Amino acid sequence: MLDRVRPGRPGREITSADDLAAWLAERPADERDEPFTFVIDTGGALRLAPRRSEHVACAAGGPVLSAGEIEFARDGGRWSVCEVGNQSTGYCPDVTSWPAVAAALDRAGLEHPGGFTRPIVFRRCPRCGQHNIVKDDHFACAACAAALPAAWNLGPTG
C-alpha cells in the first residue's frame, strides 16, 4: 500500500469551518452523506479524503496521531461532526487517541460529540502477530485463539 502513496499529496488539511465547507462543496452530493477518511498528522492537523481512500494515502505515508472515519451534518447552516470513529486497519489507533482528534476539531472550530461515537479496540496477537478487532470484550485472537493483551500493543500509531 505504501508503494502507491504519492509523497506530497496528503488528504486536504482542514483548519477552519470555512475550509470544511469549501472541501465538502467540491465533493459530489451523494458523497457528502457518507463518512470520510481522516487522519490527524503529527503536527496535529486534521486531513480528510474520500471514504474509499486509504488512511496511509491521506497521511502521505507518514505517521499519525489518530485515524478513522468521520461524518458531518449541516446544523443551522454550519457543518459539524455527527459521527467519528477510529476505524483504520492500516494504523489501528487506540481509543486513547481521541484527544488529538478533539484538539484538531476544536482548532478548526468544528463542534463534535466529545468522544469517538464508534470506538474500535485493536490488539496485536503476541503469539501469531495478527492484528485483531476486539468485539464484545472478547480478547482472543481470531487467527490462533491466543489471549490478547488488555493494553493496546500496536506500537506508535503510524
Rank of each mutant, 00 (worst) to 15 (best):
G90A: 04
G129T: 10
A147Q: 14
E83P: 05
A150C: 02
R74E: 15
G76V: 14
P149M: 01
R74V: 13
V64E: 00
A147K: 07
G61K: 10
H55F: 09
T117E: 01
R52Q: 13
A59S: 14
W152K: 08
R78K: 12
H55E: 08
R51F: 07
G115A: 13
P126G: 10
G90H: 00
R78E: 15
A143Y: 14
A57E: 13
T89R: 13
A142F: 10
G62S: 12
R52S: 07
I70Q: 02
A102C: 07
L105H: 02
A103G: 06
W152F: 15
A67P: 07
I120G: 03
D94Y: 00
A102D: 13
V81M: 02
V121P: 09
V121Y: 09
C141N: 03
V56H: 13
C82Y: 01
T117V: 01
A104Y: 13
I120S: 10
G114F: 04
A151S: 05
C125P: 11
R51T: 14
T89Q: 12
H55W: 11
N153F: 05
F139L: 11
V84T: 12
S53H: 04
R123Q: 04
C128N: 03
I120R: 15
N132C: 04
V84L: 12
V56A: 12
S97G: 12
I133A: 12
G76E: 13
A57F: 00
N132H: 07
R52P: 01
P149F: 01
F116C: 03
V64S: 00
G85T: 01
S66G: 07
Q130K: 11
A151D: 15
R78F: 01
F116P: 03
H112F: 05
A150E: 14
G109T: 08
R118P: 02
A102M: 05
V95P: 00
V84W: 14
A59L: 06
A146L: 10
A146G: 07
A143G: 12
D75K: 09
A143N: 15
D106W: 07
G115S: 11
C125Q: 14
A67K: 02
V101M: 09
C58M: 08
G114R: 02
I133W: 06
I120M: 15
A103L: 08
G85D: 02
C58V: 03
G90K: 05
V81P: 00
G109K: 11
L65F: 05
V121S: 12
S66P: 01
T117S: 08
A104G: 05
E83G: 00
R118K: 14
I133D: 05
C144T: 08
G77H: 02
Q130E: 15
Y91C: 08
A60N: 03
G68H: 06
V95D: 00
T89K: 04
C82F: 01
A142S: 14
D94V: 05
N132D: 10
P93N: 04
K135I: 03
P113F: 06
A150S: 08
G61A: 08
I70D: 01
G61W: 08
V64T: 07
A102H: 11
Y91S: 09
A142W: 11
P119H: 15
